[in-house]
Design a protein around this nucleic acid. Structure first.
Length: 630
DNA sequence: CTTAGGG
DNA sequence: CCCTAAG
């Protein structure tokens, strides 16, 4: 069986359709002990999973996965909301917060959870209270999230729920988009039944009301708890091996100064309309995994509210080791820095929610529940195995200097804290977990992200283009070959998600289908692109292009030789040329990376020299002849 | 948006 | 690769 871990992060910003999950949760605590919390979350998750599984046995019917017309989505949603206002809200809220829910089915979980709660008379009251609290806290995000979850959620089949803490759901991969939609909107009734279906491969776990404080989960109150969701998305989105914690902003924290402090406008709980502002205002951060290296780190994203101002915490994968070094725990950082300065104003941060990495599990339908449990357990274990690290992001930049004071870092009372993020990542490398795999398709959805981000998605077919241009060249696409594991960005604002036309989904699907190997992904704020060393073939193509076009026409070079290599920008080409020139100038022993044939380097120097002269000569004569000496 | 350079 | 100043 294969298990995939995914990282999600929640953001208020935009959402990528495919994105997975997240969730949210309850109101928050102001403490910053994330680590512990996370652990709790995991524990809860595990517990919930078990519980769910146990319950699962009772379920037999299979959810209706027949597609529902896309157009119906909105309508259904509305209906759903009306029918189950409270639940809906709760669900939405969750979804928005943590759940980015890609295709995972957070909403499904929530529903499931709700249903279960409802069904269980003994827990009814509790459930109600939980829902109430959720509802009460529901904020602007609710709607958005809902939309998001709907879209992303493939199927959310809850396995069971633990009223007090949350619920864990299993997602069935077999569902189609329409099916997903249907499920999400339809229903409550089918959700639970679907659980029984063993075809599903995805597993989603959601834990709510995770208390961030060190208190045991049990002690957490709905009002002051944060939720953790763990989801596995079968959707084939990129999965993040890491875990992510989403801290929802507090936009809506009750105690959050009545939302006055909220940066984002919030809609009333009754307002089901989508609220674009919310998203727009917020900075979105994404988690992503370093695509290279075993470093599959998990991060957690969350938001915090700070006396009116909110902090957005996001986790993303850091690709560099040095970032990894940042092991400072959130708590530590906060405490140490917060109190180090005597006269400094106190900065209060509230973590609204945490999302646990999404897990994708593929398991044969004839597998036993026990094996499923074990799979889930292994997945969770893998996630927490390596411990957690915390990073601080300000305006998307990772603050590596732990000695900086918060004030120096820009985290102070008067500041707008929206652009401050915290990242939590699991140390455990994804490779460490045997059963975890990342489907290629997972990366395909990057295009989705791009759509929202307005950034062009990277295409996998760059090599093809190169081949066309340079038949003799054989290029390998590092992106598709060298980086088996990539994470798509997640982010997404509820708003963007909500805004996305349904048609887009189809487009996305098509895109994915046509570009199966694509690993494109959108980078999150502050995220560094994955390193994709130029191959010799690419170098050759570059050299040839420069020989013809010169060294000052990178855009042309790009179009000519790397038009389809979307991950190579003209700036990249320029940079590469720069390094090539440098490489050619140094002793072979000093060169690093894949050795470039001396012949090419010679051409580089020749072309560089030639074009330098041309430039000097033709200072004012733009049109450059496409002839180059070699 | 492109270039050009420094980081 | 990133970031930015310039044009």
């Amino acid at each position: 069986m294969v298990l995939q871990k995914r990282l999600d992060y929640g953001s208020h910003g935009h959402r990528v359709p495919d994105k997975p999950p997240v969730t949210t949760l309850a109101p928050v605590k102001r403490s910053l002990r994330i680590r512990k919390k996370q652990m709790y979350a995991l524990d809860l998750l595990a517990t919930a999973a078990e519980t769910l599984l146990a319950d699962q046995d009772n379920l037999s019917s299979r959810p209706n996965i027949n597609g529902t017309p896309e157009g119906m989505k909105s309508v259904k949603v509305e209906q759903f909301d009306k029918a189950f206002p409270l639940r809906s809200m709760a669900v939405q809220r969750d979804a928005c917060k943590g759940c980015t829910v890609g295709r995972a089915g957070i909403s499904g979980f929530l529903r499931q959870a709700n249903m279960r709660l409802a069904e269980n008379s003994s827990t009814q009251n509790l459930a109600d209270s939980v829902l109430e609290s959720l509802t009460a806290n529901s904020d602007v995000l609710a709607k958005d999230s809902f939309v998001r979850s709907r879209k992303s959620c493939r199927l959310g089949f809850g396995l069971g729920t633990i009223p007090e803490y949350g619920a864990i759901g299993v997602c069935q991969p077999w569902s189609t988009r329409s099916a997903e939609v249907k499920q999400v909107h339809r229903a409550r009734p089918t959700v639970i039944r679907s659980q029984a279906d063993t075809d599903a491969a995805a597993l989603c776990a959601l834990v709510e009301t995770m208390d961030l404080d060190t208190r045991p989960p049990a002690e957490a109150s709905s009002g002051s708890s944060s939720g953790v969701h763990m989801c596995s998305d079968y959707g084939g989105h990129s999965s993040h091996p890491s875990c992510l914690a989403n801290v929802q902003h507090a936009a809506c924290r009750d105690d959050d100064e009545n939302s006055s402090g909220c940066v984002h406008p919030s809609t009333s709980g009754n307002n089901r309309g989508y609220i674009p502002h919310y998203i727009g205002d917020r900075r979105i951060r994404r988690l992503f995994a370093s695509r290279l290296r075993k470093a599959a780190r998990n991060k957690i994203c969350g938001k915090m509210s700070c006396k009116g101002s909110k902090l957005n915490f996001c986790a993303k994968k850091m690709s560099t080791v040095r970032r990894r070094v940042q092991q400072t725990t959130l708590k530590r950082k906060r405490h140490a820095q917060l109190y180090s300065e005597k006269s400094s104003d106190e900065v209060k941060l509230t973590i609204k929610s945490f999302s646990i990495p999404e897990l994708l599990i593929e398991i044969p339908d004839n597998a036993t529940v026990g094996s499923l449990k074990k799979t889930v357990s292994d997945a969770v274990t893998t996630i927490i195995e390596g411990g957690l690290r915390v990073g601080v992001l300000i305006q998307g930049k990772n603050i590596q200097n732990d000695n900086k004071t918060l004030r120096q870092a820009g985290i102070c009372r008067g500041r707008k804290l929206d652009d401050i993020g915290f990242t939590l990542e699991c140390e455990a490398a994804r490779d460490s977990s045997p059963g975890v795999i990342v489907p290629e398709e997972d990366f395909v959805d990057a295009s989705d992200v791009d759509k929202f981000a307005t950034i062009k998605p990277e295409e996998p077919d760059e090599n093809e283009q190169l081949m066309q241009d340079f038949p003799g060249c054989s290029l390998s696409d590092p992106g598709s070959v060298d980086y088996p594991v990539e994470w798509t960005t997640q982010e997404t604002s509820a708003s963007s998600q909500a805004i996305v036309p349904f048609a887009d989904q189809n487009v996305e699907a098509l895109a994915i289908a046509s570009v199966p190997l694509s690993r494109s992904k959108r980078l999150d704020f502050g995220q560094r692109r994955i390193r994709r060393p130029f191959t010799v073939a690419e170098v050759e193509v570059l050299v040839e292009a420069v020989e013809h076009l010169g060294t000052g026409r990178w855009r042309d070079v790009k179009f000519r030789a790397f038009d389809n290599a979307h991950h190579r920008t003209y700036v990249d080409l320029k940079d590469k040329w720069k390094t090539l020139v440098h490489t050619a100038s140094i002793a072979p022993q000093q060169r690093r990376g894949e050795p470039v044939p001396q012949e090419l380097l010679d051409r580089v120097l020749a072309a560089q020299s030639y074009w330098s002269q041309q430039q000097a000569k033709l200072q004012g004569d733009p049109p450059v002849p496409e002839i180059c000496p070699t």
